[in-house]
C-alpha cells in the first residue's frame, strides 16, 4: 500500500487531549471529531489539512488517554498516515484497530519538516522525502500486526476467530 502527501510536523509527547480534547467527546461521530483534530496542538490544523496529508511527530505520539476518538479524528480529518519516532502503547493498538496506518521512524521524524512532500510504502516501510530526495527506513510492522491488518483490522479478526469456547483459567 502506497501513500503520498504533505507533511505536518509536530513535537514530542503529543497527547490524546491535544489530538482530540475531551470537551468534544460527548460524541463519537467521526466528522464532528475531525473538526477538532489536533486543536490544542495547532488550532488551524483541522481547517488546513488536505486529504492524504501525513502527520510526522517526535517520540511518544498519542500518550495519555485510551480514547479511540484520537485515531478516529485523525483518520476522519483525511490524514493518510502518522509517522513518529515512537508511539504510546494504547494509541499504537488503537490506530491498527481503526485501520489508521502508522510508521515508526526516529530518522524520518528527526529530519522531515512541515510542508515537505512524502511518499511511503507501508509494505516495505520505506519513506521517501520527495522535497529533498531523501529516503528513510521505518520499522517493519510486527508479524502479528500484519496478520491483524490482513484480516482487515480487529473486528473482522474477531468475527473470524469467534466461537472459541472460553476455558476456565
Amino acid at each position: 500500500m502506497k501513500l503520498s502527501g504533505k507533511a505536518w510536523k509536530f513535537g514530542a509527547d503529543i497527547d490524546t487531549d491535544a489530538i482530540i480534547p475531551a470537551r468534544y467527546l460527548n460524541t463519537s461521530d467521526p466528522e464532528e471529531l475531525a473538526k477538532h483534530c489536533m486543536e490544542d496542538a495547532d488550532p488551524e490544523f483541522a481547517q488546513r489539512v488536505s486529504a492524504g496529508d501525513i502527520i510526522v511527530a517526535e517520540r511518544n505520539f498519542g500518550c495519555g488517554s485510551s480514547r479511540e476518538h484520537a485515531p478516529i479524528a485523525i483518520k476522519a480529518a483525511g490524514v493518510g498516515c502518522v509517522i513518529a519516532a515512537s508511539f504510546a502503547r494504547i494509541f499504537y493498538r488503537n490506530a491498527f484497530n481503526m485501520g489508521l496506518p502508522i510508521l515508526e521512524s526516529p530518522e524520518a521524524s528527526a529530519d522531515i519538516v512541515t510542508g515537505e512532500h512524502l511518499e511511503l510504502d507501508l509494505s516495505t516501510g520505506v519513506i521517501v522525502n520527495k522535497s529533498r530526495n531523501l529516503t528513510y527506513q521505518a520499522q517493519p510492522v510486527p508479524p502479528f500486526m500484519q496478520e491483524l491488518l490482513a484480516t482487515g483490522g480487529l473486528i473482522p479478526y474477531v468475527m473470524k476467530t469467534r466461537g472459541n469456547p472460553k476455558t476456565e483459567g
Binding site: S66, N94, M98, L154, I155, V158
Partner: peptide, 18 residues
Amino acid sequence: TGVGSTDLAAVMITGRIW
C-alpha cells in the same frame, strides 16, 4: 491495563485479548 474501545469490544465478545 487500558485499551481502546475496539479492543474492549473484542474482549466483550471473546473474553480474551492478545
